[in-house]
């Protein structure tokens, strides 16, 4: 068993949860540790993948509403006022 592998999986899970907006308190760390321990029972191969894919269902990762980049389009047109020689085509 590789300590580094477990440490890496736990570190990634905690970093992900912290970036996703969860408070990285001792309780969260213990839960993440339990998740890694659980996944480890299936073997070392693919540990990181299993831990990371289990995160969303095992932790209430906040999902803020999708941002509104722009409001609904309310189409208008640009007018050219008065035309004239040499200033339009």
């Amino acid at each position: 068993m590789s300590d580094n592998l477990i440490e890496d999986a736990l570190g990634r899970a905690l970093a992900y949860l912290r970036l996703a907006g969860l408070d990285a308190d001792p309780a969260l760390t213990r839960r993440a540790l339990r998740l890694v321990d659980e996944m480890l029972e299936q073997g070392e191969d693919g540990l990181v993948e299993r831990v990371m894919s289990a995160l969303p269902e095992r932790f209430a990762v906040p999902e803020p509403p999708e941002p509104l980049g722009t409001p609904p389009i309310h189409r208008g047109a640009i007018g050219y006022g008065v035309g004239g020689y040499g200033v339009g085509r």
Partner: peptide, 16 residues
């Protein structure tokens, strides 16, 4: 601004 200030391309030569 929308009604009167649209900018058409200049239809001269070179720079214009």
């Amino acid at each position: 601004f929308m009604r009167h200030c649209g900018l058409r391309r200049l239809s001269g030569f070179g720079l214009f």
